[in-house]
Simulated assay, not measured.
Amino acid sequence: MSEIHIERNHGLGLAAAREVARQWMQQAEQDYGMECTYAEGEVCDVAQFNRAGIDGSVEVSADTFTLNATLGFLYGSFSEQIEQRLLQSLDALLGAKAPADDDAYNDKDWL
Rank of each mutant, 00 (worst) to 15 (best):
M1E: 12
M1K: 10
E3A: 09
E3G: 10
E3M: 15
I4W: 03
I4D: 03
I4Y: 04
H5Y: 14
H5Q: 12
H5R: 14
I6L: 14
E7P: 00
R8Q: 13
R8T: 13
H10T: 02
H10S: 08
G11F: 07
G11E: 08
G11M: 04
L12C: 06
G13M: 00
A16D: 15
A16M: 11
A16Q: 14
A17M: 10
R18C: 09
R18K: 10
R18Q: 12
E19H: 10
E19A: 15
V20R: 04
V20I: 14
A21Q: 06
R22H: 08
R22F: 02
Q23M: 13
Q23L: 07
W24P: 00
M25G: 10
A28E: 09
A28V: 05
A28G: 13
A28Y: 12
E29V: 14
Q30W: 00
Q30R: 14
G33Q: 07
E35V: 11
E35N: 12
E35C: 00
E35Q: 13
C36L: 03
C36A: 09
T37V: 10
T37A: 09
G41W: 02
V43K: 14
V43H: 15
C44G: 02
D45N: 15
V46W: 00
V46S: 07
Q48F: 07
Q48E: 14
Q48M: 14
Q48G: 10
Q48H: 11
R51P: 05
I54L: 06
G56I: 04
S57D: 12
A62S: 13
A62I: 07
T66S: 12
T66Y: 00
T66N: 08
L67C: 03
N68M: 10
G72Y: 06
L74K: 01
L74R: 00
L74Q: 00
Y75Q: 12
S77C: 11
F78E: 03
S79M: 04
S79G: 02
S79I: 02
E80D: 14
Q81E: 09
Q81I: 08
I82N: 02
I82Y: 00
Q84S: 13
Q84K: 11
R85F: 00
Q88K: 10
L90D: 09
D91G: 03
A92N: 06
L93S: 01
L94F: 04
L94K: 02
A96T: 11
A96H: 15
A96V: 04
K97H: 05
K97Q: 13
A98D: 00
A98C: 07
A100C: 01
D101Q: 05
D102E: 11
D103P: 01
D103L: 05
A104H: 03
A104D: 09
Y105D: 11
Y105K: 05
N106A: 11
N106W: 13
D107P: 02
D107H: 06
K108I: 07
K108G: 00
K108Q: 06
D109F: 05
L111R: 14
